[in-house]
Amino acid sequence: MSEGHPIKAVLIAGPTASGKSALALELASRADGVVINADSMQVYRDLRIITARPTQDEETRVPHRLYAHVDAAVNFSAGAWVADAAKALEEARAGGRLPILIGGTGLYFKALTAGLSVVPPIPAELREDVRARLERNGVEALHAELAIRDPRAAERLNLRDRTRIARALEVIEATGRSLLDWHHEGQPPLLSKDSFRAVFLAPERDELYARIDARFDAMLGAGALDEVERLAARGLDPLLPAMKAHGVPALIRHLRGELSLEEAATIARADTRHYAKRQFTWFRHQLPEFEWVKPEQAKRWLAAAADGARASG
């Protein structure tokens, strides 16, 4: 951020297992802050363990917002998160607290700092019809249908990307307009470019991957399999975001007898490592305003952020 402008928020991003939560907790303690979730999986109340949500002890140390406030049956969107985040920011400011937004979901931070396209709500019956056609006819047939209705969107999508193909088709059917067109119109950002400090924690890859593997093993030890079993018992649409949280699909396959627990864990660890790699790429290209720091430099960055928050308070 530019010098001379008051800090109205601090943004802490980074790949999964990079140490974001500890940094946010310490900053909130030092700067009278409130921690606001910017992770698309930690919004779901059904998934505390498998998404590494803050512990109950951590949540009692400083105020936390937008965690576990959405049911897994809800297809929660970035637009819905922006609306909730706007309320959380207003509440924090009204209480004289520093908003600290933390997470790994790049689209949420992009919406926060650059705005977001607004697609009208899709009628539930239309969404269910598209999902039924996807299951009945397969992703190739749905992509062929999209190519007729919205060739520009179809051309940009991977032929195997079930979720985005279904999303693009339901938008063109519901609105008569391409999803690409909606992306050009939208909400303004919640934060102006000079009103925040933003950091991206960037551990060395080998170190990060080792932490990811160890953390998944710890999740299993803490009861992640039981948590996923309770979720699976609800019989929800497998295309819902909560059903695709890292580790959930593989553990469900284990519960069905399709994989051993070790095979499921191997898949989950690999999926999470691949996601972390995509996070590095996305933030580097989409959010250049974030300062990249190594975890060992985070304490120094935190001290500067806390000082800046006090100076602007």
Rank of each mutant, 00 (worst) to 15 (best):
S178E: 00
L179T: 07
L179M: 10
L179K: 06
L180W: 05
D181L: 00
D181N: 00
D181F: 00
W182Y: 08
H183S: 09
H183Y: 08
H184C: 08
H184M: 11
Q187T: 14
P189N: 09
L191T: 06
K193I: 15
K193G: 15
D194P: 15
D194R: 15
S195V: 11
F196N: 01
A198M: 12
A198V: 15
F200M: 01
F200S: 00
A202R: 14
A202W: 08
R205C: 01
R205I: 01
D206E: 07
D206S: 01
E207H: 11
L208E: 00
L208I: 07
L208F: 00
Y209V: 04
Y209A: 01
A210M: 01
A210C: 02
R211D: 03
R211F: 11
R215G: 02
R215V: 01
R215D: 01
F216R: 04
D217I: 08
D217P: 01
A218F: 10
A218W: 12
M219Y: 12
M219E: 13
L220S: 06
G223T: 11
A224R: 05
A224F: 02
D226V: 11
E229W: 11
R230S: 05
R230N: 06
L231H: 05
L231C: 04
L231P: 01
L231N: 05
A232R: 05
A233Q: 09
R234L: 07
L236R: 08
P238Y: 15
P238S: 08
P238Q: 13
P238R: 13
L240S: 03
P241D: 11
P241L: 08
M243W: 13
M243C: 08
K244D: 09
V248T: 08
V248P: 09
P249D: 03
L251R: 14
H254E: 15
H254F: 14
L255V: 13
R256T: 13
R256Q: 13
E258G: 06
E258I: 10
L259Q: 09
